[in-house]
């Protein structure tokens, strides 16, 4: 079975900018990620106190999903397990791993923190998105040296073909020390991205990923 898939929305967060569906939505004044993401959280009036408990990787991906899915209810549209979340990055949870390691470096001051440790897995981000948007579907987190649009298109396409998903949130969410980069795509069988339908293929994904903001 062959399906034609569309990018019905996308969200980019990089260089203190937030862009969704081709519109620049927010430019932060703060340079440091911690401050920038808090500013964005307040700007978009998210109102989800658990956000403050998340690590930086989860904050970044959560925020991108928040704007990607604005005014959408995928649980209603596709059933509770119809939407998949397929993410990748290069550093896994290394950013938080380093923080956790600090808490155990000194045997004389040895207080490993459970709330930091829990975020030393990259897929926790998918848990945070799933909880927020009530999504129970297919989940996978891959680690790759760089954003691999071919793999993403091939993997997500076969998930649709084999009817494992009817809708998919996919993309790249990277957090490594002071470097961050997030691009999320909402992939559906039908979709309208502002001025026209954008087919979910390698070229379009690369074009969006390479947008300079």
């Amino acid at each position: 079975m062959s399906v034609s898939l569309h990018i019905s929305n996308f969200c980019l967060i990089r260089n203190n900018h937030v862009m969704a569906g081709k519109h620049l939505l927010f430019t932060g004044k703060e340079i440091a990620f911690q401050d920038f993401i808090k500013e964005a959280y307040q700007h978009f009036k998210i109102g989800y106190p658990k956000f403050y408990k998340m690590d930086n990787l989860s904050k970044l991906g959560f925020m991108a999903a928040e704007l990607l899915l604005k005014d959408r209810d995928l649980n209603r549209d596709y059933g509770k397990d119809g939407t998949g979340i397929i993410l990748a990055n290069a550093a896994a949870s290394l950013d938080t791993d380093r923080n956790y390691q600090i808490s155990i470096n000194d045997r004389n001051n040895y207080f490993p923190s459970p709330s930091v440790f829990v975020y030393t897995l990259p897929n926790i981000l998918m848990g945070e998105i799933s909880i927020r948007h009530h999504l129970f579907g297919e989940n996978a987190f891959f680690i790759q040296k760089k954003f691999d649009s071919l793999f993403m298109v091939e993997y997500v396409t076969q998930l649709f073909e084999k009817q494992i998903v009817a809708c998919c949130i996919t993309g790249w969410v990277e957090m490594d020390a002071d470097q961050y980069d997030a691009v999320l795509f909402l992939v559906e069988k039908t979709g309208q991205l502002n001025d026209g339908i954008t087919i979910f293929n390698v070229r379009n994904i690369d074009d969006i990923y390479c947008l300079k903001i």
Partner: peptide, 13 residues
């Protein structure tokens, strides 16, 4: 539950 574990760490630390 994670908050509870974190408070346990706080009390010990």
């Amino acid at each position: 539950s994670i908050d509870a574990l974190e408070l346990i760490v706080l009390l010990e630390k």
